[in-house]
Amino acid sequence: MMKQLIMVLAIAAIAGTAKAQNYFTRSGFVGFYSTTSQESVKAENKQVYAVIDPTKKALAFTLLVKGFLFEKELMQQHFNENYAESDKYPKASFNGTMEGNIGTAPGEYPVQVNGQLTFHGVTKPVTMPATVTIQQGKLSAKGNFTVKPEDYNITIPALVREKIAKEIKVQVQADCLPSK
């Protein structure tokens, strides 16, 4: 009896180590958009690292904050220097899980993503509706959510408060390929 139990546990442990199929990209996309009547700010980062594990329903994103490109260079400089402090906090990352059914057959699967977003040295829970698309060995994920700058200790001086939205829209997209 004991031997059988040990066998079962041992098999379970080995099964746990068996490598699950991960999907990976180095060119994911994260963009954020602030719109007020006075000013529209748009910043996009196309060098986002993302890994998605559809079996475990886990996913992780990471990016270099300096990789966000703005339309105005001065704005980009101020973003890095005064708001995101990218010298001090070079990376932003997200680590989470997906709720909902993800099949293996090609198709679109709506999921709910729950996780932790780390930016400017602050980690906060974020949830968002997302879509996972599977087609011919490729896995794409797409979602959007909003964040409040003050939640991430980003202080906006009174002078420009009218120019920066209270809630910033964030778009995320990652087209991943199976990783070796």
Binding site: N22, R26, Q47, Y49, A50, V51, D53, K56, A58, L59, A60, F61, T62, L63, L64, K66, Q77, N80, E81, P90, K91, S93, N95, G96, T97
Partner: peptide, 24 residues
């Protein structure tokens, strides 16, 4: 499980990212 996935990703980013301009 969760943090190791992110850690691997961060390591990969550190290895592959090119030099970053020092601005300001």
């Amino acid at each position: 499980q969760d943090s190791s996935m992110l850690r691997l990703l961060n390591d990969s980013l550190d290895v592959n990212a090119g030099p970053q301009k020092v601005t300001g």
